[in-house]
């Protein structure tokens, strides 16, 4: 994995510090072109990995990349699935079955032909595989060496104690996509324990890691202990604690944990991207 992973929150009006700022971002990044413009700036600065949610608009970005394969042939995307609001809104609007009809691959008839609901009732993992395939369709022809589950889903599986789902996900991503499975979580210590318990070794785990303990459930001390003593491949996110910390002190903090392989961050201006990238590369060297 690259040390620097460029994130997508700024493109999709996700701002943990300010709802107002997030709406400003929505106005700025109103189409794929405006996103591509910033992404190209990041690429020109030497960033080679884009870590992004399976938001509908990403399909437009990957389309642009496929059509300009010369420029983007070595560029990596780390997909993070699913984009949960898409499903949550669909479930509220259409009910659970309606939402399934809308988002499962093909139409409901081909779904039924593959065994449909009756099959799913017997074999839940088939259902998971169909959803994964549906989510990842937009990345065909793109390098996706690491594929993440979003934190809402990771942490829901974790809370429900459905631990074997992780093992099945892990195996499926390796087999079908020849990629490294990754896990985004807000509960890193608990997740690592569970992943190890189902036989997953040295997993890629992306979690909040910051000096103030923001969104580090279980507490900062426990996180630090895991970062020092346990075997996994940590990716740090929310390193600025949603903006509560200044970049220099925030990223310097990461330097004490040599195990951290990558840092995920998002920015919208070239100068911010350059500054943060340089700080990360210095801290993780």
């Amino acid at each position: 994995m690259d040390k620097v992973l460029f994130g997508d929150n700024q493109f999709f009006a996700v701002n943990h510090l300010s709802d107002e700022k997030s709406r400003e971002q929505a106005r700025r990044f109103k189409d794929a072109q405006s996103i591509m413009y910033v992404l190209d700036q990041a690429i020109d600065l030497g960033i080679n990995t884009f870590m992004c949610t399976t938001h509908d608009r990403i399909a437009e970005i990957t389309e642009i990349m496929r059509n300009n394969s010369g420029r983007y042939s070595r560029f990596n995307i780390f997909p993070c699935m699913p984009y949960a609001h898409k499903y949550a809104n669909a479930v509220t609007e259409l009910g659970p079955l309606g939402a399934m009809k809308q988002y499962l691959p093909g139409n409901i008839f081909s779904f039924a032909a593959k065994g449909g609901l009756a099959l799913l009732n017997k074999d839940f993992s088939k259902f998971m595989e169909m959803l994964i395939d549906a989510e990842l369709k937009m990345f065909r022809g793109i390098n996706t060496p690491v594929i993440f589950i979003q934190n809402v889903l990771t942490d829901m599986i974790l809370g429900l104690g459905a631990n074997e789902v992780f093992a099945e996900y892990h195996a499926y991503i390796k087999k079908k996509y020849n990629a490294e499975p990754g896990y985004i979580t807000m509960n890193m210590p608990k997740l690592l324990d569970v992943l190890e318990s189902v036989g997953i070794e040295n997993p890629v785990i992306c979690s909040s890691i910051n000096k103030v303990g923001f969104r580090m459930s279980g507490g900062r001390e426990l996180y630090e202990e895991y970062l020092r003593n346990r075997t996994f491949r940590p990716v740090a996110m929310q390193v600025l604690a949603a903006g509560a910390l200044r970049p220099k002190e925030a990223i310097d903090y990461l330097g004490q944990f040599p195990k951290i392989e990558s840092v995920l961050f998002g920015a919208s201006s070239k100068s911010h991207i350059r500054e943060t990238k340089e700080l990360i590369e210095a801290a993780l060297s």
């Binding site: 609901l117 009732n121 017997k122 839940f124 809370g159 631990n163």
Partner: peptide, 27 residues
């Protein structure tokens, strides 16, 4: 509740069989 140190998720109830089969299979 499942992750809560002082609570135990003993049972769930729903009419959608897909959900129930997921619970039965995995926990």
């Amino acid at each position: 509740v499942g992750a809560h140190p002082e609570a135990k998720l003993s049972a769930v109830c729903d009419t959608l069989s897909l959900m129930l089969s997921g619970v039965k299979q995995y926990n």
